[in-house]
């Protein structure tokens, strides 16, 4: 669905974000895009949506160039930005004005999502809280039935029950022909939701692997003491939370936060494992 070839992007000569990035993303997956602040998560998403232009390299989304901003492709992109503005109108007016642009917009699904998120339908968008607006825009985006769903920090501003609802809705929204990319720094919000992790660091893709692949190759354990086999460890109340090679094909649950820190701290040790 998405093909990125040798992407180079920078905002200025001194602020290079991506150097020769290449990767492919397929439909039927929920990708979690992780990275430090300023690593370029949002910029990569914007490149995919055609909101910024790369200096060189090629991006193809559903066989089209997003930089051309063709309606045929825009109909298939649902982008939930971190910061957004909604007009001072009611939800039904908003839907009336925007839904017609999306040929596969599902009004019933939109109504169901609003109900699930407990959004008061008659209220004006401008009078809603940030979290409520976010739920409206997420519901609208999913109801467009776009094939590419891009979400930049979607759980920011959502309260705890809403985060659980969000995870449930996203899990059910994934179909065979959809590709969902979620960028976040709140990795725990995406637990059990994403199936592939993409990590950006130092202008490159530091890691791109499915959760299955990660837990096949790495083991996440609680240890009392650490030894030389440990790739990365963090002290905890009961000893250490450690990442180590999964030599004995043991089952362990992916600790996304620990993996994230391990990738940042021990890039060189992890690289050979995933190559």
């Amino acid at each position: 669905m998405i093909k990125i070839d040798n992407l180079n992007f920078s905002y200025s000569k001194h602020r290079v974000l991506f150097k020769d990035i290449s990767m492919q993303l397929s439909s039927g997956h929920i990708y979690g895009l992780l990275g430090k602040n300023g690593a370029g998560k949002s910029t990569l998403l914007k490149n995919l949506a055609g909101l910024v232009y790369a200096q060189s390299g090629k991006i193809e989304v559903l066989g089209l160039d997003p930089a051309k901003r063709q309606p045929a492709l825009l109909q298939q992109i649902c982008f939930i930005p971190e910061e957004f503005h909604l007009p001072a109108i009611k939800i039904d007016s908003y839907v009336k004005a925007n839904a017609a642009f999306y040929p596969e917009f599902d009004h019933q699904y939109f109504a169901d999502l609003l109900k699930e998120f407990d959004i008061p339908v008659g209220q004006k968008l401008i009078d809603m809280s940030y979290g409520q607006k976010k739920k409206v825009i997420i519901s609208f985006g999913l109801a467009t039935n776009a094939k590419l769903v891009i979400m930049d920090e979607p759980t920011n501003g959502l309260d705890i029950p809403s985060k659980a609802q969000f995870r449930k809705i996203m899990a059910s929204a994934l179909t065979e022909d959809k590709c969902i990319i979620i960028s976040t720094h709140q990795v725990r919000d995406l637990d059990n939701l994403i199936d592939t992790v993409i990590m950006l660091d130092e202008n490159k893709i530091a890691l791109k692997a499915t959760v299955e692949e990660i837990t096949d190759k790495l083991s996440f354990k609680r240890l009392k003491e650490i030894d030389e086999t440990v790739i990365y460890a963090e002290p905890s109340l009961a000893g250490y939370n450690a990442v180590m090679p999964n030599y004995h094909q043991e089952d362990s649950k992916l600790d996304m936060e620990l993996l994230f820190n391990a990738v940042l701290a021990e890039k060189n040790k992890l690289k050979p494992i995933f190559n």
Partner: peptide, 13 residues
Amino acid sequence: KSKAIIDLLIPAS
């Protein structure tokens, strides 16, 4: 930024 993203991505040429 908050207004531009939604507007630029509206499926019209």
